[in-house]
Design a protein around this nucleic acid. Sequence first.
DNA 1: CCCCAGGTAGGCT
DNA 2: AGCCTACATGGG
Length: 277
Amino acid sequence: MKYFLTECGIRVENKEEFNPKHILECGQIFRFEINSKGNYVVYSLDKMAEIEECGDGYNIFTKDANYFINFFDLDTDYSSIKKEIIKKLPFMQEIIEKSQGLRILKQDVFEMIVSFIVSANNNIKRIKLILNRLCERCGEVLDGYRAFPTKEVFCSLSEEFFKEIGAGYRANYLADSKSLKLFLNKQDLSAMPTITLRQELLKIKGVGPKVADCILLFAFNKKDVFPVDVWMERVYYEFFSKETRNRVQISKYLVEKYGNLAGYIQQYLFYYKTIKN
DNA sequence: CCCCAGGTAGGCT
DNA sequence: AGCCTACATGGG
């Protein structure tokens, strides 16, 4: 994927490999918006990037270029991944073409855990609402926006607070900072194999099989996972098999079948199923 | 009024 | 181990 550093951020040259709408609207991240210029603006921890279409590519305006090179995983080439998927699953050709430039992000682990605990049995609009209220109430004031709360601040918040920002019954999970701290303080997390890391994630209150898979995929860059939610359950019966399986079994079945392509396949399909237009 | 949303914890068998 | 259900809240 072609990109280089500029005075005010990053220049991305290839539109087939990078499309902000497809990257941000595919359900892997909740803190982004379209500003008055019509540009996508994305937030991660205390950092921000504005993405402007320009010529044959995009300009990414940010003070933290190196952070966002990693965040957008710009050194991964998607052309071979797409080819491999289409080779194994020809029906995916059209779906992949419609979501050209979709990329799986490498997000912050702490922010991902919190965000996806909130996501459980919830809709994207309300997930965004709750997370925005969290930042508005507890995040550092920065230049025109709020940071995500630090771990220290977050872990001091009460169940009552989380109810106030509309987290509902998930307030109880969010307030259980002990299991979260225990996980985050473990050594060499990113060196662990997927299965081991998954077992550790499941010890966090509010993290079940689906949320654990999302964290593995969107934060730890593990691609041998297949998060199964209501949408993916439908997709499984539509495209893959009529054999009755529960969500955990569907996930296991597809990971065994597609290995390190599973994560990508899942994300293309989720976007295809949930996008409005 | 209903039903649904990127499910999970706790209790039961 | 695997199945069942309650669960807050905002939007359609």
